[in-house]
Design a binder for these strands. Structure first.
Lengths: 338, 338
DNA sequence: CGATTTTGCAAAAACGTTTTTGATAACCGA
DNA sequence: TCGGTTATCAAAAACGTTTTTGCAAAATCG
């Protein structure tokens, strides 16, 4: 149906290889011939068949994003920003983006993530959403398949990674609050500490509390779950402490919004009586009233950088051994709540 | 590097074609031989190379989502839900999802959307985010390439489509408010009427107002822009009308949240003095206080249904001529604001 | 028991590219 | 004029599958 290189060759009155040469610049073709060829291409609306091309070049010009099940609970904006970032980088280098979702009900759910690699339908893979200890990408790294781990430190594994500096983000939150005179600063973890980001934020909080105030009071630490409502109960506890906190850092904006709500119920005004800082810089932080001061994870840029890295890896710009671990700083958006 | 079908054949002591037969069931293979083959496959971790396979079968087992620039402004959750829905359907039928974003700065931005089709790197395409009058998919339809238009009625074009019933959604909003005794119900369009959904919601509003109250008062109609703040100014106008509305339907949740805010400023309590209904059932509607009664567009299901339809189209289950126009009803989520 | 069908597998062509190798013609310097 | 480049293009192999055709052996049948 669609025009092939043969059709173009016939139309231009040359051999197929000449068409290929003209398109790829892989050999000298006379200007005049080139012109004829490109005109024929234009007339026939020809584009090389990717499968045929891929078969011989061993390149698909696809980069894949493997989304493990864990990512399902992610803040909506997060995953989408990563995808958009990927799209931008991919577009620049003439790649397309392939998505592969973990099949939760399969016998070996991770297998489908790896199939993209096994089928060779992408030249490289970015994986996000894996939890501590989970390493479905082990095979990729062992086989030196271009791979970038996103949203997690790659300490467990010698592989390239792009991550947000969650620790710095939490540190910055404390620093910001300290600058406003707060000393009793509480922290609610965003979710299970199985998730690296959660642990990292906690570490950053502790570190900052130690740096600024000589130590972290465990009384001020609350273990939130993924449910936003975990902010609810914990706020009640925190605000009923004898020496109650004047500020709460919530591990996610959704939790922060509940904190504010609970505070209001308890007759506690935000930010006057209680400062609140969230994480993610999601719509929630902008829409809540008061709007929430929030720590942004630069997900779009992470997706972009990860894709760039991946493409370098694919095209041989950087070696697999010289493991790159890109860590991007978080950004504080000051709003009404603190 | 990776194992090929030849390796498997050698390992199992058969010819390559036999391996292919065993895997695809396209010819009889003795049970005993089959067993040997599958063991070899398992040992070698073999998966057929997609490019090679695609070259002969003319199938890539990819379905593509083409996201036109307009979709950039979409509510975050919307695009992601569509993608997730696609992922679910694709997973069931052993397809993968390819994304192709419009390249805004290209000479012919639409071309990149079509390249996926021209390069034959996907077996079918879903397109979303096109505006009225824009028909970058014309070529696809003309060539009878499997294609589904998503999020728009396909009236302009004889093609399959999956859409939310925006008109019914708006109608339902009015009906719901009427049921609560409201008669002066205002409407703020979600964005430019260039976007079909926007026009459809307006139509639904008008129709309902006519059905329930004999006509729509144009005074109660406000033309919002994409900026959420458009709800701000318009609310002020609406609430200062002599015969002021007791309810406002906002074309998007983000706008609704601004409406609530402005109402509060004007000393108008929601929902007591003013009922508010939004659209999209986004996080915003859940997080806002009061939480916002909102009309959900079933985007995840739309993505799912569109993909199913597309795959049927690809695999010949349905014909291209028997144009299907799936319209899914919106769902009203009652919350505090109305 | 011979003729026919069925079963199980192999050989080989085909898919649409890229790329290596080669051939021819033009050009150039001495 | 001539050997040696250089420029331009063509022929053909290769990529890893699927699929058509075919063939031998086994099974079935009258």
């Amino acid at each position: 149906m669609a025009a092939t290189i043969k059709d173009v060759a016939k139309e231009a009155g040359v051999a197929v290889c000449t068409v290929s040469f003209a398109m790829n610049g892989s050999a000298h073709v006379a200007e005049e011939t080139k012109k004829r060829i490109f005109e024929a291409i234009e007339r026939l609306n020809y584009r090389p068949n990717q499968s045929a091309r891929g078969l011989v070049t061993k390149r698909t010009n696809n980069i894949g994003l493997a989304v493990s099940e864990t990512a399902d609970g992610l803040e909506n904006g997060i995953l989408l920003d990563v995808i958009k970032g990927m799209g931008q980088a991919a577009g620049q280098y003439n790649y397309d983006v392939m998505l592969s979702f973990q099949k939760p009900h399969a016998a070996k759910p991770d297998d489908h993530l790896l199939d993209v690699y096994r089928k060779q339908s992408a030249d490289g893979l970015i994986m996000m959403g894996t939890k501590k200890g989970e390493m479905p990408y082990r095979e990729l790294v062992a086989k030196r398949f271009p791979f970038v781990l996103l949203g997690r430190p790659s300490a467990e594994c010698m592989c390239h990674s792009v991550n947000a500096d969650n620790e710095q983000g939490a540190y910055m939150a404390v620093e910001y609050l300290a600058g406003k005179g707060h000393r009793r600063i509480a922290f609610i973890t965003p979710c299970s500490l199985e998730v690296d980001a959660s642990q990292d934020r906690l570490n950053g909080y502790r570190k900052a509390m130690t740096d600024f105030f000589g130590g972290a009071d465990d009384e001020l630490l609350a273990y939130g779950s993924f449910a936003a409502d975990s902010g609810y109960a914990e706020t009640e506890r925190l605000l009923s402490l004898k020496d109650r906190p004047t500020a709460i850092i919530a591990g996610r904006d959704a939790i922060a919004s509940r904190v504010i709500e609970k505070a209001a119920e308890l007759g506690c005004k935000v930010p006057e009586d209680l400062a609140v800082v969230g994480f993610d810089n999601s719509v929630v932080s902008q829409v809540a009233r008061p709007s929430i001061t929030s720590i942004e994870l630069p997900m779009l840029e992470m997706g972009y950088r990860a894709s760039n890295l991946l493409i370098q890896l694919i095209e041989g710009g950087i070696s697999y051994d010289n493991t790159q671990r890109i860590v991007l700083p978080c950004i504080l958006h000051a709003r009404e709540s603190a």
